[in-house]
Design a protein around this nucleic acid. Structure first.
Lengths: 238, 238
DNA sequence: CGTCATATTGACTTTAGTCAATAGAAGTGG
DNA sequence: CCACTTCTATTGACTAAAGTCAATATGACG
């Protein structure tokens, strides 16, 4: 469970024994939450950051006019709101798309890392930078891609992230998001999402099955989306 | 010139004499660049991060289909690509909207900060988190605000950032961006930007004058945009 | 005074949104 | 196991926001 965190931070640079021990000591016991539950609220200033252990989380902003924009998706192993360590109050909320387990890391302990483990600190900064890089990719989609491409791009991203987390099984991964939720991710209406998904199915890019998504040929989907996985930094860098 | 950087990092937490000295030693001599010049290229892995001293910079992604999305704007004092310290290669390019001066900070020196100045390190993390928060705000706009609101929101953001940087003079600030550039920021066509700007002028929200923008009543503009400056974290936090 | 870039306009097309109804599927209590 | 509620997906008809294309100003500048 803390394994995922160690693996993730190692993706920036290999950790010494000492560093690794420090990372292992970070999170508290995971807690269970129900589907739809909000685990961090916009405007609050939590004293801990969340690590998703199990399930699916998303960050979002609710607008006065009743709409909302989902800002990120998080799969197990993700440091969901690492930034709240330095930036408060929260400018958005965090909720769970399915029943999930969440571990918390007290900011106090992060401060100790920064004070004593420069290598791990860089790993944390790398994770924050990766989060921002994903934000940028979503901005590009929201600004310059059409509905079909946005959805295709999202599915590509999740395909690769899921695979990296060891959660991709034979071209398929869990995707327990409703069409209105996909709409709030892609900045679309749910009706338009529905029609775009139908086109993608017709084109053989995806197959939907219960809460699962099947991608028969990731190359075809990537081509349709203009997807380049570089921004996910899936391979560790020297 | 390095003043702006010290002031910015102090916004997270006051710096000790020692810390402040370390920050002052960071940037190299500023260099001059021409309008339109690209100072960092997508795909490269620079060994330095840029601080804008004078002028106006923006980060952007060019798409295969000839369009582009501008991802951020930077005014003097901004650490434009601090993230390149930990995340490479660059997933976007940086260019200058007007003739500008740019100072560079070797990543080596940032590494020394992380190793020896935890307080400054947190300031750097805070700056990265602030960058991501602005990304999120833009995502919300691109996904859920219409053209009129997007432009109004952008102008509000620049109004406050410019004021914080001491560059707002009597309700007006320099805004040397063409309508096609505004379009690439807001994910719109330049024609639609033109028409939206006309409506904003008619509504008395803005006055455009050469490369300047005049905001007679920031409250009115903010109301039109649904703008809340909280995400800019203009006041330092205890 | 001509040139280049930027801004503006008009006419038309396209993408996406809205509203409202219908159809399925999953879960619950009896 | 079945009726019932509820959530989610789908469809049709219509509207609206934004894009495209192409022409025409406008304005800064050498």
């Amino acid at each position: 469970m803390v394994e995922a965190l160690v693996r993730k931070l190692s993706r920036y640079a290999p950790l010494s024994h000492d560093d690794e021990a420090a990372v292992r000591a970070l999170p508290t016991l995971p807690q269970d939450y129900a589907k739809g539950q909000q685990i961090v609220e916009e405007g609050s200033s939590p004293a801990e950051s969340c690590v998703l252990v199990t399930g699916l989380a998303f960050r979002y902003r609710a607008l006065p006019n009743g709409t909302r924009q989902i800002l990120s998706l998080h799969i197990p192993g993700d440091f969901v709101d690492l930034h709240s360590f330095v930036l408060h109050p929260m400018d958005h909320s965090i909720a769970l798309a399915v029943p999930s387990q969440v571990a918390r890391v007290p900011h106090q302990r992060l401060m100790e890392i920064v004070a004593a483990h420069p290598q791990v600190t860089c790993g944390l900064m790398w994770d924050m930078a990766l989060d921002a890089a994903t934000h940028r990719e979503w901005m590009v989609g929201l600004g310059r891609r059409d509905a079909y491409e946005r959805l295709a791009h999202l599915f590509c991203e999740l395909y690769y992230r899921t695979r990296m987390a060891g959660l991709l099984h034979d071209h398929r991964f869990e995707l327990p998001l409703s069409q209105p939720e996909l709409a709030d991710i892609c900045g679309l209406s749910s009706v338009h999402v529905n029609r775009s998904l139908q086109m993608m199915r017709r084109d053989g890019l995806i197959v939907t099955e219960k809460g699962w998504l099947i991608v028969p040929e990731i190359e075809k989907l990537s081509a349709a989306a203009g997807f380049d996985p570089a921004y996910l930094h899936l391979i560790s860098r020297p």
